[in-house]
Design a protein around this nucleic acid. Sequence first.
DNA 1: GTGAAAGCGCTAACAA
DNA 2: TTGTTAGCGCTTTCAC
Lengths: 334, 334
Amino acid sequence: MRDVAARAGVTKQTVSNVLNNPVVVAPGTVARVNAAIAELGYVRNLTARGLATGQSMIVGFIVPTVSNPFYSEIVEEVEACLESRGYNLLLCTTRGDAARAARHLRTLVGRSIDGLLVAGDSDLDSHLPLLDNASFPYVLCAWETEAPANIPVVTIDYEWAGYLAGAHLRDLGHRDVAVIAHLPAHGTRVEGFRKAMAEAGVLVPDAAVYSAVGGVAAGQVLHQALADHPGLTAVMTSHDVLALGILEETRALGLPVPAELSVVSIDDVMADRHAHPPLTSVALPKRAMARRAVEMVLDSGSGRRRATTALLVPELVVRASTSLIGAVKPLPAS
Amino acid sequence: MRDVAARAGVTKQTVSNVLNNPVVVAPGTVARVNAAIAELGYVRNLTARGLATGQSMIVGFIVPTVSNPFYSEIVEEVEACLESRGYNLLLCTTRGDAARAARHLRTLVGRSIDGLLVAGDSDLDSHLPLLDNASFPYVLCAWETEAPANIPVVTIDYEWAGYLAGAHLRDLGHRDVAVIAHLPAHGTRVEGFRKAMAEAGVLVPDAAVYSAVGGVAAGQVLHQALADHPGLTAVMTSHDVLALGILEETRALGLPVPAELSVVSIDDVMADRHAHPPLTSVALPKRAMARRAVEMVLDSGSGRRRATTALLVPELVVRASTSLIGAVKPLPAS
DNA sequence: GTGAAAGCGCTAACAA
DNA sequence: TTGTTAGCGCTTTCAC
């Protein structure tokens, strides 16, 4: 910067002024400075700028993993929003490792990042106090369990998502249903589901709620559920990874969906559209949540700084994996 | 830091010394300083440290997307390696947008990051000169097209991957084959495939090489290929997303795999294992590549700084989607 | 083993 | 409109 200043016959400060907007600089000077910048191939050092301003133009994001379509979509949207506002993304994954999550948190506090988004409750709950020393705003994101008070959180109404799935099955006439869920993480979704079924007077017993991690496991669990509940007409899964696994399994079993078993899920991942049959799922507004979260951290300086909660509402997307109970069975696909 | 120093009755410098290894500090002093740090909840400012040392402990990574299993796996491994060495990851996605890629590159040059990994050749080829001004080492990664000379690159022998797929089909006796590929990006893989087939004297004509982006499109293209080549006994796809789409389609078509059509692919994504049938695929050593790339950028300071090229070799993983030509057809799954 | 001084490259506030 | 002075929080060099 000093070199640029010298070459343009001005001081560092003037160079700084043409680089930043606020101060008006004489057109001639601007031209000379820009010429010098171009000739020297100068790029301003953002670290130094960050130290001087206290703004790093970096936002951190702690996420459990990126190899899950739910999170990878959120990460992409967050990155896109940040980029459009001139920020960069510092990505940290926890991978189900609480110690690692804590390490990340500690490092981030030391970095003067301009904000932090935290998704993936399970690994972090207990370590959140580390952020007390943080000099930047942070918001919790995609938080499914009870969020600590006084911390802004933008999340989805997961219970409502479960309710919508349940109401759908209920309205289709299903009464003998099972749930396959990623527990305990998705407990809220199951509660919502139960509430919807309860409105038709049907109680979903614990014996009809199975736990599974991953699509393959879900497939196995389906066998169990089918054996336990011979009258079963429908299944809800707590997220699409499980549902996709179940769809695979029904195909192997020769069990026609939705004719003999309706399957409804939660998340609405892109692959759902192309599943066989296309999966009925409650769409979680991931991208909207991502955008909201970014706005929230970045704008938390201006205006009120109080903890706010944004609760986005999911919507049912009906495709072909659910049908009225007792509907005529179509012939198996030729 | 000044406060810590005051509380411990020493100077900033001494605090700095206990924080960093090199200088030996009296045990008593160390204890007092650490106590002060703990009491004050002090965390050292990495921006300031970065400005002073020229080391930010941040490595950048430019990738096309994270919602593709190939890249998300690489991103995860890169992040893990960096974390274990005390670095953080600055993630940039290009999303097939060259302008955006260029913007990212420009910003990164201004950040004093300690290194940069660049994957996703197609969007960036032409903008690479922007890195000439960079003050940090960078390495190209997962580069499939011709890499610019004099830049270190760690990638995979994609042609060999194609060759392995071809050799597998060839050794199984297949002669009438088609290729469905993400072109032009995966052209190298197709070339390798052709070489393997050529060794059995079979020429794969351009008319048997189809282009498709995405699994659904691949499914459509399969119809076309089947119509064009009635004698078709095997298909190679250039990556697993396409193969998975094709497997779905064969199921809808009632075309048994591998009895009537063998399918071999390239990549070996986790989902392959659980596909129906499990997909035979040439495994690209993504995680090894990620590790190598991280080592390469971070260690490029020490020792020789010359451009090096690491070419990792893929390996065929035989599962159940390929079989000897003319093998007995199993009955369709009950 | 510890302290004092200088400086990393930039911006903030004010003075000219 | 431009220049001057300070200082962001840390490390480095060297003297004590």
